[in-house]
């Protein structure tokens, strides 16, 4: 999952990026509204953390501009303005959530994950793609009662493919969502990561759990919906 943090306080921006990266997100940052707007236009983020009082272009303008351009990226406002009027104004302008500084980092993480889940049409934290089950909050992978350990990057790639099950996800999109813009991404990084995921899933899942579409990307087939007994086939 790739996030954009737009925050003018360098210290807060860096600590947010550090924490969110440690939590498994790929994080880009912007120190002002203008840079934030440019980044949000250039990259498809899974969520944006946006301060309101920003130099050059204020946060509300960034928010309204993105919404007017029909960009539906979930946006969480992170602001020192705690008045109801400010919250109403931010949410009315198109923000999906509003968190007042100072805040709990756990709460920020939970809200971001919930925002991303809802944006994918998922209400629950557990995502079942048989035979594996992803805990989107705990960032863990279960097969039956066994928890399979994944490094953050590989988990992020698997989660992204699972969230888009049934669709071929291009390598470029995977790179965009898994790696922050300041990270050096090797040309075969995605392929290597997919290979590593397959190895970890063996022997719990078949080798074709993740299908390769040569020259395009990767696909996890969408699971067939369960049919109840007595239902005509």
């Amino acid at each position: 999952m790739r996030l954009l943090v737009v925050e003018d306080s360098a210290r807060l921006r860096d600590s947010l990026a550090d924490g969110l990266t440690a939590a498994g997100f790929a994080v880009d940052t912007a120190p002002n509204g203008r840079d934030g707007l440019l980044s949000a236009r250039a990259t498809s983020y899974d969520a944006i953390v946006l301060d309101l009082m920003l130099p050059e272009v204020d946060g509300l303008t960034v928010l309204r501009t993105l919404r007017s351009e029909h960009r539906s990226t979930p946006i969480l406002i992170l602001s020192a303005n705690d008045r109801i009027a400010h919250r109403v104004e931010g949410l009315s302008a198109g923000a999906d959530d509003y968190l007042v500084k100072p805040f709990s980092f756990d709460e920020l993480l939970a809200r971001l994950r919930a925002l991303i889940r809802r944006s994918r049409g998922l209400a629950a934290r557990l995502l079942l793609i048989p035979p594996i089950e992803l805990d989107l909050d705990a960032k863990s992978v279960l097969i039956g009662a066994t928890t399979i350990d994944f490094p953050p990057r590989e988990y992020a790639l698997l989660e992204y493919l699972c969230l888009h099950a049934g669709r071929v996800v291009p390598r470029s999109e995977l790179e965009e969502h898994i790696y922050a813009s300041d990270k050096q991404v090797w040309s075969n990084a995605v392929d290597s990561a997919v290979a590593a995921i397959r190895r970890r899933l063996t022997p719990h899942a078949s080798a074709d759990f993740i299908l390769t579409r040569r020259g395009i990307g990767y696909l996890i087939p969408k699971p067939e919906p369960k049919r109840s007994e007595g239902q005509p086939r």
């Binding site: 306080s9 210290r11 807060l12 947010l16 924490g19 020192a80 705690d82 500084k101 100072p102 980092f105």
Partner: peptide, 14 residues
């Protein structure tokens, strides 16, 4: 005071 406290809080929590 909110922003420095938010900085302090985030740094410590992370």
């Amino acid at each position: 005071l909110r922003t420095p406290i938010a900085e302090l809080s985030t740094i410590a929590q992370v």
